[in-house]
């Protein structure tokens, strides 16, 4: 018998229990303002959060953030990034890079879903958003539209399934990379980004 058949048959022969499928879990109801809840929870994970009036404000905000961190005025955009279409002249001196970001670089991502319950960004891997770009840079700047902020993780899974074929990877990101492995003391930037900035764009 193959290992597969032997394991499955052992499970079937020994089984006694017949536990019922539990009713669907109802997570704690979201707070009245999803965007506020999202921003609040994201800040709790040590992400920096700003609210912008319009997508056209992104270039200036990116330049501001880089300046505030004394970082080089360069931002990495993946090929086919929707942000390539923005008017980057509003952020003079800022250069756009298309190669893969290094551990001290900054990268910009458009995030299709957010979770209010935990302040989490959800990134299904896709053509315009390589999954590794959420982990390679030193700073990730994530842009999310208010309408894409959903109450719970379950809502996000439902939306992704509705949209058709599943991607190879879905990355849930809550705050910058961290570790407590040395003396149980929190340090940011273990392997992934040392900082995460979220730009929430208020749009219909």
């Amino acid at each position: 018998m193959s290992a597969r058949d032997e394991i499955l048959s052992a499970i079937r022969t020994r089984r006694v229990k017949n536990a019922p499928r539990p009713a669907r879990y109802a997570p704690p109801p979201p707070e009245s303002d999803l965007v506020k809840q999202f921003a609040d929870r994201a800040r709790r994970t040590a992400a920096e959060v700003q609210i912008l009036n319009d997508l056209s404000d992104v270039p200036a905000a990116v330049a501001d953030i880089l300046r505030g961190k004394n970082m080089e005025a360069a931002i990495h955009l993946p090929p086919h990034s929707p942000f390539a279409a923005l008017d980057w002249k509003t952020a003079p001196g800022l250069s756009l890079e298309s190669k893969s970001p290094g551990p001290d670089d900054a990268a910009l991502a458009l995030v299709p879903f957010g979770i209010a319950e935990t302040g989490t960004l959800v990134n299904p891997a896709r053509d315009s958003a390589p999954a590794s770009w959420h982990f390679r840079p030193g700073l990730e700047i994530a842009v999310i539209h208010t309408r894409d902020i959903l109450p719970h993780m379950e809502n996000v899974f439902a939306r992704i399934k509705q949209s058709g074929a599943l991607p190879h990877t879905i990355n849930f990101v809550s705050g910058p990379s961290r570790t407590g492995d040395i003396e149980q003391t929190l340090e940011l930037g273990a392997h992934g980004p040392k900082a995460l900035a979220i730009l929430i764009v208020e749009e219909a």
Binding site: P78, T120, D127, S128, P130, H168, N171, S174
Partner: peptide, 19 residues
């Protein structure tokens, strides 16, 4: 409340995916 990263891994990359 949640770890920094939760990763749902569904398969190898397909032709359209960047990495």
């Amino acid at each position: 409340d949640i770890s920094s990263y939760v990763t749902v891994m569904l398969g190898p990359r397909n032709a359209k995916e960047a990495d």
